[in-house]
């Protein structure tokens, strides 16, 4: 396992180097000019060119890339073109809300979806199964922002049970945090509940039909240990994969939810930075995301070994 971890960490460095070049190139090739956005609507061409020069955006591509790379190697993610603040500071400001939303969403998704999937598999073909899968289709089909608006309308605007928007840190006010994060978590979690429930159902169906499960029944074992101790354990590899991929996708996919609920997270930071061409922030965030994805994949691989002792690398 140590060798696996070391190999993956070395691979991470190569992946991030490739991502760095790719992202830098893509951003600079895309149309748009942050100097024009900074200059504002009343500016002239000369104003824009002056700002470009001040920001170093008129330097050749390779010079800009090497300058940025050199700074990265020293741990400096650069400075926002717009606010003049360090990118690392801006990312740190935003990471907590995104991590909080991602964590609550995955927790809710796992806690709700796995029992749903198990129940659907156990009662395959029944009304329970069909109802679960119907909700799953709905969860895939309805966009996140539609769910979000409906939840806001009912639970925030009408019933006033939770706030319409915003984020409260759990370290400042745990109750406020739970109230504020409830709707975004449900809105974002619906799709993942649907996804994980379906995968769980499919994996469990395969496991439930195995001989060892029939033997367990014959030996008089209760349904709960059969499903949770025997069948689920053997069905868990695809479920763990889906959950892991879900975490990775969530980090990048929270932007719609963060925008609707005005949560100051990384998703919104990235989307806003892309729209205004704040290159250093986009580059910094994507670099960090790529590192996180690699680490998540590594974690999933380690969990495989723990869950299924037959797996060896």
């Amino acid at each position: 396992m140590i060798a696996l971890i070391l190999k993956r960490l070395v691979a991470t460095a190569f992946v991030m180097a490739f991502v760095a070049f790719f992202v830098f190139g893509l951003l600079h090739l895309a149309p748009g000019d942050p100097a024009a956005v900074i200059a504002g609507d009343i500016a002239t061409k000369e104003d824009i060119e002056r700002i470009r020069a001040t920001l170093g955006l008129d330097l050749p591509f390779h010079t800009q890339f090497l300058n940025w790379l050199g700074a990265i190697m020293q741990g400096d993610l650069g400075t926002s073109i717009f606010s003049g603040r360090p990118v690392s500071e801006l990312i740190l400001q935003r990471v907590e809300p995104t991590l909080a939303l991602t964590t609550t969403t995955i927790l809710l998704s796992v806690v709700v979806a796995i029992p749903l999937g198990i129940a659907a598999a156990w009662r395959a073909g029944s009304w329970i199964d069909r109802t679960m899968m119907g909700f799953a289709v709905l969860g895939f089909s309805v966009p996140v922002f539609v769910f979000a608006y409906l939840l806001i309308m009912v639970f925030a605007a009408q019933l006033k049970l939770v706030p319409v928007m915003g984020y409260v840190s759990p370290f400042k006010d745990l109750g406020g945090f739970l109230r504020a994060i409830a709707l975004p978590t449900v809105a974002l979690g619906v799709t993942y509940v649907a996804l994980i429930a379906r995968i769980t159902r499919a994996s469990m169906l395969e496991a439930i039909n195995q001989d060892y499960i029939r033997t367990a029944h014959a030996k008089g074992l209760g349904i709960v240990p059969i499903l949770f101790r025997h069948a689920l354990r053997n069905a868990s590899v695809p479920i763990v994969t889906t959950v892991g991929i879900g975490i990775a996708l969530l980090i990048g996919g929270v932007v719609v939810t963060e925008s609707v609920f005005a949560i100051p997270g990384l998703g919104r930071l990235t989307a806003d930075s892309i729209l205004r061409r704040d290159y250093p922030i986009v580059q910094g965030v994507i670099l960090i995301f790529s590192g996180i994805y690699v680490l998540i994949n590594l974690t999933i691989d380690i969990i495989y070994i723990l869950v299924d002792p037959r797996i060896r690398y």
């Binding site: 922002f145 319409v164 928007m165 609920f261 005005a262």
Partner: peptide, 9 residues
């Protein structure tokens, strides 16, 4: 950024 959310707020 979301105008509907801002209105509700």
């Amino acid at each position: 950024p979301d105008t509907n959310t801002a209105t509700q707020a």
